[in-house]
Computed example of a mutant assay.
Amino acid sequence: MKLTNKQKQYLKGLAHSLKPVVQLGGNGLTEGVLAEIENALSHHELIKVKVPTDDRDEKSLIMDAIVRETHAEKLQVIGHVMIMFRQSDEKKIQIPKG
C-alpha cells in the first residue's frame, strides 16, 4: 500500500503522542525483536521503534531491514526513533483518502 504525503502527514500527527513500543537491545535485530514488531504492528497498526545505536549507517541498515521484513511503511525517522505503519485487516486507523 502506497501512502500519499497527505496520508503520511495525518499518520505522523497521530504518532506524535505515542511512545516507542519496541526498543532494540544490545543484540540488535533478532528474530524475537522482529516478532515483537510484527505483533505490535498487527495490534496497533501505527508504532514507534527505537534503534539506539550511534552508528548512522548501522541504524539505517537496521531500520531498512525492519521495514523490509515487516512489509510496513516507514513514515519518519527522528533521531533513534522510527515511525511505522501497516494497516491490518480490521483497519483500526481510518486514513483520509488520497
Rank of each mutant, 00 (worst) to 15 (best):
G25M: 12
S60H: 14
D54K: 12
L14R: 05
M1R: 09
E45H: 01
G28L: 12
T53C: 08
A40T: 00
A72W: 00
K92S: 08
V67N: 00
I37E: 00
L14E: 10
V22T: 03
Q23W: 10
A65V: 07
K59R: 15
L61Q: 13
N39S: 04
E38H: 10
V22W: 01
N27P: 05
A65M: 09
E90K: 09
P20Y: 05
V33D: 03
K59E: 09
I66Q: 02
I78C: 05
K74T: 03
Q9Y: 11
S42P: 02
K59W: 05
I62G: 03
V51W: 05
L34Y: 03
Y10M: 10
I78Q: 11
I95D: 04
K8T: 10
I62Q: 03
A40S: 04
N39M: 15
N27M: 15
E90S: 13
Q7G: 03
M63P: 04
K48G: 04
V33T: 11
L14Q: 03
T30E: 11
E36D: 12
K91T: 11
M1K: 07
L61S: 12
D64Y: 11
E90A: 13
K8N: 08
G28V: 07
L29Q: 06
Q7M: 09
D64F: 07
S42Q: 14
